[in-house]
Every structure is written in C-alpha cells, then in structure tokens.
C-alpha cells in the first residue's frame, strides 16, 4: 500500500479567491451551441419530408440576391409573407431558433443605422433593416432544416471540384469531432480552475494548441487510412439528383418570387 503525504489525508479548509474567468464559461457555451446543432442535424436519413439540398442552396442564393437588389417595399412585404408562410410549416422550436437569430441581427442593424435616421435617411434605414432580417431568416431556415452531410452533395451538383467537396466534408465531420475534444478540455480547465488563474492566455493557448496538435495527428492518421484504402489524390463525390414534389414546390415559390421581383420593379 502506498504511503500518502500528510496534506492529502486532511480535508482542505479552502476559501477560493475571486477571479474574472468568464472566458471559460463563454467558450463552453459557444462550443455547446455549435455541437448541439451539429448533432441535431447530421446523420438524418433523407426521408419523405426533405427538400433536395441543391434546390435549397440555389433558391436561397436567388432569394438573397432578389432581396438585396430590390428597391420596392412591396416586394419586401411579399417576400416577408413568403417567409412567414414557410415558417408556419415548421415546428415551434425551429421557428423560435430562426427568429431568434434573425431578429438579433435585425436589432443590431437598427442600432448601426440609427444615426442615419437623424440625417433624414429613415426610409432607407427601414428598407435595409428589413432586407437584413429577411436574408438572415431565410438562410437560417434553410440551414436549420438541412442535413449537414447533404450540403456537400449540393456543391457536387453545382459542379464544384471533387477536392473541394472532400475538404468540405472532412471539415464538417471534424468540427464535431474536434469540437467535442475542445469542449472536454474546456471542462477540464473549468474543473481545475479552483482559484485565481494568473496565466489565462497560457491556459487557452494550451487548449487551442493541443487542439491543433490533435488535429494534425488526426489528419495524418486519416491520410494513412485513406492511402490504405487506395486513395491516390483523386476523389469522386457520389450523389444523384432525386426531385420530389416538395422540390417542385420550392422551385415554384422561387420562380414566383422572381416574377414578383420584376413586377414590383416595373411599377
């Protein structure tokens, strides 16, 4: 049996000192939010109620472009209506998530544009704020319903180089993997931060630095594994286009928006 040092046999009578180490908790929260999104939106089977990612990505680019280009308040009202309609089909938690982000960005924009209202640019400020809100809400809506893994399939169909798709896929996968690792390290730091840390930057440097070393190690292992399976630098992303009635509806709605854009412009 090992002999224990004396101090280890006594309970510590310890009163912690104050410290400003909110960065640990804030980092933990940010990692948690990213990881929970990743977990919720990967590995889903492309079921009946899913829209083809290519259709989604293309329509979101078109909508963003139209909203950005238009000078007609009427078009914005129509688009907003379209947004509300699409949102109404989603479940409550998702709606809340979409609105939370987009309203936050909109409020932020209002704050930025507030001074311009005082020099007589009120109407422009309102237009810009509404546009910002609409764009963010649409992107959030698409990203919140998209399966992460299928996004790269959309790029493939857009003719992106296979190499890019491989890099994108690896990045998505390792955001979750390395994110869990980083989160554990942050927890370890938190559990051992029982007093005042005089080297906060060094602790953070240690965590992010270890994360990098781990990344590099994993990348080397992965390359080894790929070589073993016959990878020679060429990568062919698989995927085929399957359009369903839902995709047709999304395409139709986007087409309608394009028509409305030109109609409201003519007036």
């Amino acid at each position: 049996m090992k002999a224990m040092p004396g101090w280890l046999l006594q309970d510590a009578r310890y009163q912690p000192r104050q410290d400003k180490d909110a960065f640990v908790d804030r980092s933990i929260l940010r990692f948690l939010s990213v990881l929970s999104k990743g977990r919720a939106r990967s590995g889903r089977i492309q079921g009946h109620g899913h829209t083809e990612p290519l259709v989604k990505v293309l329509s979101i680019i078109v909508v963003a472009l139209l909203v950005s280009l238009t000078r007609s308040p009427a078009f914005l009202v129509l688009t907003a209506t379209g947004l509300l309609v699409s949102l109404a089909f989603q479940e409550a938690r998702l709606i809340a998530r979409v609105l939370k982000t987009s309203l936050a960005v909109a409020v932020f924009t209002v704050l930025i544009l507030l001074p311009s209202v005082f020099w007589g640019r009120g109407s422009a400020a309102v237009m810009i704020t509404v546009k910002v809100f609409l764009s963010v809400a649409f992107v959030k809506l698409v990203s919140a319903t998209a399966d992460w893994a299928s996004i790269s399939g959309a790029f493939k169909r857009l003719g992106a180089p296979d190499l890019f798709i491989l890099v994108f896929d690896i990045a998505l996968k390792y955001i979750t993997l390395l994110g869990e690792f980083a989160l554990s390290m942050l927890y370890a730091l938190k559990l051992r931060s029982v007093g005042r840390n005089t080297g906060k930057t060094a602790s953070l440097g240690g965590i992010a630095g270890t994360l990098f070393l781990k990344s590099k190690e994993m990348a080397e292992d992965m390359y080894g594994a790929m070589e073993c399976r016959g990878f020679t630098g060429e990568y062919r992303a698989a995927g085929r286009l399957r359009l369903r009635w839902r995709d047709g509806m999304v395409c139709g709605a986007t087409g309608l928006l394009i028509a409305l854009f030109f109609l409201t412009r003519a007036r």
Partner: peptide, 22 residues
C-alpha cells in the same frame, strides 16, 4: 497529409473562432 490537413485545418479554423479570449 495533403487533403485531410486542409479539411481538418478548416475545422480547426472554425473552432478557434468559438474560443472566447480573456
């Protein structure tokens, strides 16, 4: 480690923007 390092580097780049710096 050619391609994997680019992808994992992207993941690393994404994650370091999540750290709050004191």
């Amino acid at each position: 480690a050619k391609v994997p390092l680019l992808g994992i580097g992207a993941a690393f780049s994404f994650l370091i923007m999540m750290f709050n710096v004191p």
